[in-house]
Design a protein around this nucleic acid. Structure first.
Lengths: 122, 122
DNA sequence: CGGCATCCGGTTTGATACTG
DNA sequence: CAGTATCAAACCGGATGCCG
């Protein structure tokens, strides 16, 4: 069995039998991408940095609480940067880290797969 | 907002604004891969067909109920085949469909990413 | 503007017992 | 062997109200 659980902000606990080590990489990646909106947030950031409200507007249905939570988790996993500008009104921009950028090919493949096999919505 | 929900065994309902259509493919793929064990099941089947108990043993910690449910969902989404042999004791083999095989590159990338960035467990 | 704290309800997962 | 059925536990995600 593979069990990946968070100990604190930036540390995972991993339990798995020797036989299953080869599956660990998959479990780890699945773990940091778990969440209703994370794929979409990363995909949106791949083009440019974006502000909090830009992301929220783009995703449409997400609540403030959920968005904040997902952004915090992505940040804790080292996938995005959070930059605060000392202005009034406040401005916060999110951008991909190099680690986060390495997830983009996966998300692009997912988009391609979904376009090929998903229902058409035209 | 993008909302992908299952209407019945083989049909999805998709709600999304025009602006978000480009994100639909991602949401679709995420949807059919949602589940604690699906990535691992697909990855395990990429090499060869396997029997129910082989999968269960391989995954270690999964319960019968959960495994059956995940397999049924994968089958309903057209990702795996279920072949029943009329023997005693019964034998059931699961294998990837061509659609399921197209998910393997994604899962391989996830494995690679996890191996690169995940905690070492040696 | 960009959050945080709290509560609540639906979904998902797992444990257990039983079966063709 | 390969399930089904039932119930309990855990895990989000969303809604709401408040704040610097």
């Amino acid at each position: 069995m593979i069990k990946v659980s968070r100990i604190n902000e930036d540390e995972f606990s991993v339990e798995c039998k020797k036989d299953h080590r080869e599956l660990y990489g998959i479990a780890y990646t699945q773990n940091i991408l778990s969440g209703r909106w994370k794929h979409l947030i990363l995909w949106f950031l791949k083009f440019n940095p974006h502000r909090y409200n830009e992301i929220k507007t783009r995703l449409g249905g997400i609540s403030q609480g959920s968005l904040t939570k997902q952004l915090r988790e992505l940040e804790a996993d080292g996938l995005i940067n959070r930059k605060i500008y000392a202005e009034v009104p406040p401005r916060v921009e999110y951008s991909l880290t190099s680690k986060g950028e390495e997830l983009i090919p996966i998300i692009d493949l997912m988009e391609h797969f979904g376009k090929k096999f998903g229902d058409k919505i035209d």
